[in-house]
Amino acid sequence: MKCLVVEDTPSLAQHLTSHLTQASHTVDLATTLKQAFQCWELSGPQYDVVILDISLPDGEGSTFLEAIRKAHSQVGVLVLTARSHLDDKVHLLDAGADDYLTKPFELKELDARLRVLHRRGLGKLPDLQAFPPFEYDPIHRVFWFQRDQVSLRSQELKLLEAFLDTPGHVCSKASLMDRLYSLDQAVTENAVEVHMGRLRKKLKAYGVEFETLRGLGYRYAFKP
């Protein structure tokens, strides 16, 4: 994912850049409004996500936001704000922000929001992997139902991917547990049951059922 980070506080900018780079994203950093516009002129269409601080030394981040929305850019914009005025959040969303994060924030929350933002902005690629009633985009890890993305939390996505990858679409609880958690995480089978329950509830509307097979686990079944 190619990110444009617009943040003027040196330490925060440095940490953000290093965190995103470590997560294999390509990062351009702008510390002023002027630099942000320069980056945008050079490689605007290539950005998947913009992380935008609202208070910059030479102006308001919202100026940049309004300018790129005026130029009909659909790039996902996550605004970082330290302000607490209630109207500001509404103003930011009205100005074209897709989401906002109030400082300080957890890096995991930042990652999660960026993922959602990136996926939301994706278009449906041709020749996707069929998984009735869905189609799966393995590059971006997105399930499509007709023209819409299926809204799944990360654990639910991992579970559905497990069924997709397994021949016969039958998964044991143990294999699902391996999918969900790393070795050093202390979890029980109950966690798998809870996430399976939630996935079941979400996909019921699409005609998908998860049959419980005694001693074996679950089987994915589409009943149109």
């Binding site: 506080t9 330490s11 940490h15 965190h19 330290a82 302000r83 400082k103 300080p104 924030f105 890096l107």
Partner: peptide
């Protein structure tokens, strides 16, 4: 208030991430 909030919360954000 906006400036003070920004001045207080941004270093806290840097501290938190660091």
């Amino acid at each position: 208030i906006a400036e003070a909030t920004h001045q207080i919360k941004t270093p806290i954000a840097a501290l938190s991430i660091e």
